[in-house]
Design a protein around this nucleic acid. Structure first.
Lengths: 231, 231
DNA sequence: CCTGTTATTTTAACGTGTTATAGATTCATA
DNA sequence: TATGAATCTATAACACGTTAAAATAACAGG
């Protein structure tokens, strides 16, 4: 509450900002604790006092971004499919905001135990939105009666994550990521949607299929430049 | 061809075996190049001469395992769904063989540029099998006419990978991995399968749904023990 | 203003992956 | 068997993440 804590907050902010900038430009391995300390006008042990380590710093930077999307407002005056698209696009615009930063941190985000809270937050946010959406669809008779909204939402999230990973390792570009994830989600909904919901999903799946097929054809079959090393 | 190359092969084998053993027990970070050199009765620079680095060594160990599943024989005298299950099970038994080893290396396998050839090999193998299977199903009138086998197979692979990742970070156990991946694949096929293919898929999806729902309920909501650090 | 507490810095060190250099060993060949 | 060419080893070093220790600065309360 005192000035002491304010200074601590300032330092934290300076460190996170410097880390963001540096990672976006030079990648995870390109960021050294000694450089970061100098850029943030702070000593190395302070980095450890305030955060705990390199991964913890980048994790905190990631968490900041995720929180920004957490408070998400999805209007109810669209179709079930339209609502699903809105939630999907929110995550996409966040990534499009600073693609290099996210891309460089995908290994950390995907697998590190440090980043598990962020993963949970992302997944639970997605699941909550989609589960509510699918439950409403089921109540309106636009979902197969045996289908479990939460289970279906989980499989949708799997499609999203797999496409995210494909983008992270450089297999597809940002547009390909979007196409891939959307097509996967539509394919998934295809078997459980009914009525108008089903019609919309089917139309979109048909439209996306050739684009996904084209994507697969243009994928590099040889090694991509090492994304993790510093440039 | 000469004795010189044989000795080199022996060294490579010794190094890979020692790395396997050590990683399964103490994890990625628990394996140091100096320890590995000693365990393989080899000097540290030799590790770099023969492989190129730590990641390259583990990548080579992973590649060995993947190659063992590559030569896969799938009998044609089953239903399309049965054949899909066979290919799926092959990958599962490989993982069940040395789960600790694979689990510890998931971050490397999933995201490292070094491991891209292995990822491609895995993905292409899966896609080839499933695409052939789906194409045959389409020719037999058991697949929606607008569906693209390769695209559907890609989305199936996404379900598989997402479940794999969930297992790798400790979100579900090996049985949960199997249940999750199968349910996802069945949900995905649900919208494009027709005839008897569709009946089998639908029956399996209905059967798996409650199990996946139960899985989601028992998931830990707090932090798991750090899997990457040495024990 | 002084004092005690707390936070930050300084400095040094440890173990790590990685690499260069020079010396020893091992193989193929004459 | 002796020579030459690879190849491995030994040693040392570098930069990195991380942490411990003591010294210094900044704060809160009297």
């Amino acid at each position: 509450m005192g000035l002491l804590d304010e200074h601590k907050s300032e330092r934290r902010a300076r460190i996170l900002a410097a880390a963001r900038r540096h990672v976006a430009r030079h990648g995870y391995d390109g960021l050294t604790m000694r450089d970061l300390a100098q850029a943030a006008r702070v000593s190395v042990p302070t980095l450890y006092n305030l955060f705990g380590g390199k991964d913890a710093i980048l994790t905190a930077a990631l968490a900041e971004s995720v929180e920004r999307v957490a408070a998400l407002h999805v209007p109810a005056d669209t179709t079930y499919f339209g609502r699903a698209l809105l939630g999907f696009d929110a995550g996409m615009t966040m990534i499009a905001d600073a693609p290099d930063f996210y891309r460089r941190l995908i290994p950390l985000f995907m697998t590190s135990p440090e980043a598990r809270p962020i993963r949970m937050r992302t997944e639970l946010g997605f699941l909550a939105l989609m589960t509510a959406n699918l439950t409403a669809a089921r109540d309106a008779g636009q979902l197969a009666e045996w289908a479990e909204p939460r289970v279906v939402a989980g499989h949708m999230f799997a499609q999203y994550m797999a496409a995210f990973l494909h983008w992270g390792v450089g297999e597809v570009d940002l547009d390909g990521f979007r196409t891939l994830a959307l097509s996967g989600i539509c394919h998934l909904l295809l078997g459980v949607a009914r009525g108008r919901f089903a019609e919309e999903v089917a139309a979109r799946a048909r439209e996306l299929t050739p684009r996904v097929a084209a994507l697969a054809d243009t994928r590099p079959t040889q090694e991509a430049p090492h994304a993790r090393s510093a440039d």
